[in-house]
């Protein structure tokens, strides 16, 4: 994805992560800004299904050629699915960060945490 893009239907975390909340589940990923800053993503280690995520804490890493970035959980919850296709095609995170480049799906453990996340406009205002 060549140009900056921050969909309105997502919630954003200051550490450049997004959540798409769907009832008591959420899909998580990294933002356009995060993937652009990293450069070409070469490796992603998914957490195990069943792992517990804690809001504001790192739950995995993404690697580009010359950088490693922690991925921070925007919400707490239990991992119910990981994006297995990223193992062979980590560049999908660059190409489609909000779609095919999603990282994990979780069952949300504390729905009120979502209140602390930003909408797209507020997140964009934090970017340099």
């Amino acid at each position: 994805m060549a140009d900056p893009n921050y969909p309105d239907d997502l919630k954003y975390h200051a550490e450049h992560d997004w959540a798409r909340i769907d009832g008591d589940e959420a899909t998580l990923g990294i933002t356009w800004y995060a993937q652009d800053t990293l450069g070409e993503v070469v490796f992603f280690t998914p957490p195990a299904v069943g792992a517990t995520l804690t809001k504001d804490e790192a739950y995995t890493e993404v690697e580009s050629v010359k950088a490693v970035s922690d991925v921070v959980a925007p919400l707490s919850g239990e991992v119910i699915e990981v994006n297995g296709s990223l193992g062979d095609n980590p560049q999908t995170i660059n190409e489609d960060p909000y779609g095919e480049g999603w990282l994990v799906r979780i069952r949300i453990s504390n729905p009120t945490e979502a209140d602390a996340l930003m909408d797209a406009a507020a997140y964009v205002a934090t970017l340099p």
């Binding site: 070469v42 050629v65 010359k66 490693v68």
Partner: peptide, 12 residues
């Protein structure tokens, strides 16, 4: 695989 190395991953 340089992300293993000290100049990138530093304390990790």
């Amino acid at each position: 695989l340089q992300t293993r190395e000290q100049h990138i991953r530093r304390e990790k």
